[in-house]
Design a protein around this nucleic acid. Structure first.
Lengths: 225, 225
DNA sequence: CCAAAAGTGTTGCGGTTACACCCATGT
DNA sequence: ACATGGGTGTAACCGCAACACTTTTGG
C-alpha cells in the first residue's frame, strides 16, 4: 500500500515559469534563457524552476523573476497552470505560469552556469521553444492583450515619466493595430489615471512633448481602449 | 494519505479542487462535501483530491467532478492555483482550482466513505469551510460574475429548453441586480445565440412562454450584458 | 372576470468614431 | 525655411437605458 501510494503520487513536482515582457525597439519582447542540457540543448525556454517546499508558489515565481532581472516590486500575476502528463520529459512536472511586465530600461540580464544565456526576443519572431513553452507564451500574450484593454497595467511597461505618444505606441504594439491620436488622448486623459508633470521632452527636432506620470501604480479595472 | 507523503518523503503534492455551481431555489448554489477527519471534522469543503501521476491536472478535476455528480461533458474551466506554504496542514499541497457549471436538474449526489455527506449550499450563506476554500469560492464567484457578462457560458446553467424569463433570472441571480425585461430580451435575441423551439411552457395560470434553446454549446466570447 | 406572468417599441443620452490643421523645436 | 513630431475640436453615428400597456392562460 505504501509502495502504491509512492508510485502513484510522489513523483509529481511543482514548478513555476515566468513570461517576462517588455517593449523594446517598437516591439513586444519576452525574456528567454538558453538551455544547455539535452534534449533541449541550445533551445530557448522561459525562466523558471522548481518550487521549494518552504516557499509559496508566488514566491517561487518572484524568485525566478529576480534571479534573471534583478528586479523586485514589478507587475507579476499568475497566468495559468499547465498539467499535462508528458509536458516535461524528465518527469511529472506541473507548472504554474506567471506573467510579468517591466519597463523598457537598460537592464543587466543575469544568468547562471546552468544556462547558456539570457536575452530578449520579439514575440512575433520567437525561436523554437523547449517544453510546452510556446503554448505558455501564447496564453500570456492573449492575457496581456485582454488586460491592457480593461485595466491600467500599461503603467508597468512605461518609465516613470512618459509622453502620450509613448503610451499610445505601447497600446498599438500590443494590440497590433493603429488608433486615432485625438481619440486616444481624449479617452485616456478623461480616465484620470495620469497627470502632467512639470517636464517636457528635449532634444527632438520638433516641438517638445508634455511628460505625464501615473497617479496610481496599483492594478485597477477601468476600460481604457 | 497526505500526511504519509509529507512525513515520509517531504514532498510537495498537487491536488485539484472544484467549485461546482448551479442555480437552485432562486439562488446560486455550490456543491460541498462534509469532512470526517480532524481537524476539519464536520466542516464542509470543496470536492477534490490529489492528482495522480498518470492523469493530467485537467483530468483530475474532471474525475473529482464526475465522482460527486456522475456528470461528464459539462462546463469545467481552470480557475486559479493556490500555493501558499501552509494552506494544508497535512503537508505541502498546491491546489489547482477549477470551476464547473451544471444545469439545475435533479441530480443524485454521490459520496464515499471518506466523506460525511455532500450537499448544495447557497453561496450567500455558506457554512465555515475547511482549508482556504472560502477564498477559492470567492475567486470562483468573481470569475463567474465576470464571465457571464462577456461570454455565453450561461448555457451551462440552463436546461436544454428554457424561457427568456429563466435566462434573465440566471443573470439577475448571479449579478445580484435587476435588469429591464425589454432591454434584456432585445439585447439577448440580437446576439443570435438562441433560437425559438416549437414548444411553450404549460400549466401556469398565465400566458404560456416561448421556449428557446442555445444554438451552440461551446464557450464563445460575446458581450451579453 | 380576475390574477399572474408573457410579450412588445420608442425616445433621449452618452460615448465612440471619423476626420485636418496649426505649433514648437532643431538644423 | 523646412522637416519633424506634438497638440487640438466638432459632427455623425450607434448602442444602452428608461419607460407602460396589451396578451394569454387557469381558476
Amino acid at each position: 500500500m505504501k509502495k502504491l501510494i509512492k508510485k502513484k503520487y510522489n513523483l509529481t513536482v511543482v514548478a513555476t515559469d515566468v513570461a517576462i515582457f517588455t517593449i523594446k525597439d517598437g516591439e513586444l519582447n519576452i525574456l528567454l534563457i538558453k538551455m544547455q542540457k539535452k534534449p533541449f540543448l541550445k533551445q530557448w525556454a522561459l525562466p523558471g524552476g522548481l518550487v521549494t517546499v518552504d516557499e509559496s508558489v508566488d514566491s517561487s515565481a518572484k524568485r525566478h523573476l529576480f534571479s534573471k532581472t534583478g528586479l523586485k516590486k514589478i507587475f507579476l500575476e499568475q497566468l495559468y497552470s499547465f498539467g499535462e502528463v508528458n509536458r516535461d520529459i524528465f518527469g511529472r512536472v506541473v507548472s504554474v505560469a506567471y506573467f510579468a511586465l517591466i519597463p523598457n530600461v537598460d537592464l543587466v540580464l543575469k544568468t547562471t552556469k546552468e544556462y547558456g544565456g539570457v536575452d530578449w526576443f520579439p514575440v512575433n519572431s520567437l525561436p523554437k521553444l523547449a517544453y510546452d513553452h510556446k503554448e505558455i507564451v501564447s496564453v500570456a500574450v492573449s492575457r496581456l492583450r485582454n488586460k491592457i484593454e480593461y485595466t491600467n497595467i500599461v503603467y508597468s511597461l512605461l518609465p516613470k515619466e512618459f509622453t502620450l505618444k509613448q503610451l499610445q505606441d505601447v497600446y498599438e504594439i500590443i494590440l497590433n493595430k493603429t488608433v486615432d491620436k485625438r481619440n486616444f488622448r481624449k479617452k485616456f486623459l478623461s480616465l484620470g489615471l495620469i497627470t502632467k508633470t512639470a517636464n517636457f521632452t528635449t532634444g527632438g527636432t520638433h516641438r517638445p512633448a508634455q511628460l505625464y506620470t501615473f497617479k496610481n501604480k496599483k492594478p485597477q479595472e477601468v476600460n481604457t481602449l
